[in-house]
Structure formats: C-alpha cells, structure tokens
C-alpha cells in the first residue's frame, strides 16, 4: 500500500479565483500543472444556478490536451477521498483536489432545503437556519444559529502525492495516516440529532485517538462544535484550529488543508481534520495526518 501525503494547500474567499488558487497550491507543492496526474473537484449546480457549472471550472485547469478529471456533488473533502483512492489504486501518483461554491448567488437558506429528503421534507422548504435551531434546542445550546454561519463564498485546493514523490519537494509532507467517511440516515427523525454516529464511526475507521495534537473541525453552526468534539472523542487537551467559516463545498477540504499545514510547518506532529456535508452533520469525513510515514 502506498503512503499518501498532503503537500500543498491554498484557499480564497472568492469562488471565482480558481486560476489564482491553482497557481498558489501548485507553487506550494513545488509541482507544475502538467505534473498533476488526477484532478478532482467538489461543487454544486444548485449554488451557482447553472447546469454543469463544474465544467467551466475545468477551463482553469488547462484541460487541453485532455486530463484525467472527476467531480463530486459534495464538499471537496469527498473529492479528496476519491483522489486518495485513485492514488492507492496506483492510477495516479499526484492529484490536485479543489472545491468552490458561490453561496451568495442564490438564497442559500432556501437552496439548502433541497439537500433534504425529496419526498417528505424538501417539499416543505425547511430553511437551513431553522433546521440548525431544532438541533441546537435539543442540545439546550445557548448559541442561536444565525445567518452568518450559513455559508460563504470560497474556493480551496489541496495537492496529494504518493511515497517518494511527496518528499521530493517537501521536507515535511503531511502523511495521511487514516481517512474514512460515513453517512447517517437522511430522515431528520431517524437519528438522535444531538449525536453524530457517522462521525464517531468515521473516526474509529480512520484510527483517530484522543492524544492527537491539533484538530480542524468543520462545523457550519457553533453548537455543532461541542457535539462534534464529543462524537470524535476529543477533549480539552487538543489544540483546535480557529473556525474559518463555512465556505460552501470547499470548507471541509480547507479544514484538511489547515490541519496539513500544521504538520508541514512543523507546528504539530499529529493532526485530525473533519469535514461535513448534508444537513445537520449527516455526512462526516475524518482524516488523520502525521509527520512520519
């Protein structure tokens, strides 16, 4: 099995800034555009209000002559998972993963209703703020969900590389020591909303232990921070990276990038990143990172 590491990270508060973000992440990884074997993105047409919006983003890659490329309609942390598997399978040595979303193009509070069950929930148009409030009240949380948490514009990118390829340009690659994702049932009444069993399961699958030094958690709403720390079994000894906002479809990937930067800079030896997608922490991904292979 191949060792795979994060060797570059970049982000921007502008969803349209992909050309700049690619330049920055490639330069941080010490790679040229043509040295990327596989490109994978996360975004959603519902945010942009345009069909196949991810196709125009491919222009920013320079896709002529043809490249190997894929896309997920989830936070780009799941695109990273796809790229990780692609490298594990031996089909690529390097990958650039990116996510972008322009939450401000539409009414995000309504648009997000369309990720709920299409038969019994979405036809009621429950707004995202209200759903978060239902969860916060169950937790007796003082923190009231607000419009500010809903989601912002943004783009981020991460470069992955396998084995010796990772150490060629980086003294301290952030090796992926474990990665897993799970999904809880879509029915809002089908799980205890004060827990996130899929996050707990993903953490166990990824081999997360409570002695991890640094954590970067993706929590669109403030009350979910406490819920998630509990679900992941993390205590007060962990250094939590500051919340950088919920950039739509790139916020989770940016948590992986931020955790990796702690390793690449030498500020930490072990780190964990978490990403979420879907309503009320329904889908969760956990990625553990370390300074040694």
């Amino acid at each position: 099995m191949s060792d795979i590491a994060v060797i570059g990270f970049a982000r921007s508060p502008r969803s349209e800034a992909l050309v700049e973000v690619f330049d920055e992440v490639l330069s941080s990884a010490g790679l040229g555009r043509r040295e990327i074997d596989f490109w994978c993105s996360g975004s959603s047409d519902y945010l942009a209000g345009r069909a196949f919006s991810f196709v125009s983003a491919v222009d920013a890659i320079g896709a002529v002559p043809p490249i190997s490329e894929s896309h997920v309609e989830m936070d780009a942390a799941w695109a990273l998972y796809e790229a990780y598997v692609k490298i594990l399978a031996g089909e690529a040595e390097t990958a650039l993963v990116y996510g972008f979303g322009k939450g401000s193009a539409g009414d995000l509070n309504r648009v997000l209703a369309l990720q709920t069950d299409p038969y019994t929930v979405a036809p009621l148009w429950p707004d995202a703020i209200s759903l978060a409030t239902l969860q916060a009240r169950l937790m007796s949380a003082e923190l009231r969900p607000s419009e500010q948490n809903l989601g912002t514009d943004g783009a981020s990118a991460v470069v992955l590389a396998a084995g010796d390829r990772a150490t060629r340009n980086r003294d301290r690659p952030a090796w992926i020591t474990g990665i897993a994702h799970r999904v809880d049932p879509p029915g809002l009444g089908e799980r205890d909303l004060t827990t996130a069993p899929s996050a707990t399961g993903a953490a166990a699958d990824a081999g997360l232990t409570p002695d991890v030094e640094v954590a970067a958690l993706h929590t669109p709403f403030a009350h979910q921070q406490l819920l998630l720390r509990r679900a992941l079994g993390l205590g007060d000894d962990v250094r939590y990276l500051p919340d950088t906002g919920n950039a739509m479809f790139s916020g989770g990937l940016a948590r992986i990038g931020a955790a990796a930067e702690e390793i690449m800079s030498g500020r930490a030896r072990t780190a964990v990143a978490h990403a979420t997608s879907g309503p009320l922490l329904q889908q969760n991904l956990v990625c553990t990172l370390g300074g040694t292979r």
Binding site: R110, W125, P126, D127, L134, Q135, R137, G189, L193
Partner: peptide, 23 residues
C-alpha cells in the same frame, strides 16, 4: 420534541404567517 420559530416565512413554506418548525 423540538422547535424553531420563523418570524418571516420563506417562499414555499407551509404557512405565510409566523409559525414554528417542529419535530
């Protein structure tokens, strides 16, 4: 079981005056 008050209903929601979402 739990609830969230809506002061200004959005387009498409079940009621056009203030109401509560609830489980």
């Amino acid at each position: 079981v739990t609830w969230a008050w809506v002061d200004q209903p959005l387009e498409g929601q079940p009621l056009d005056h203030p109401f509560a979402w609830a489980l």
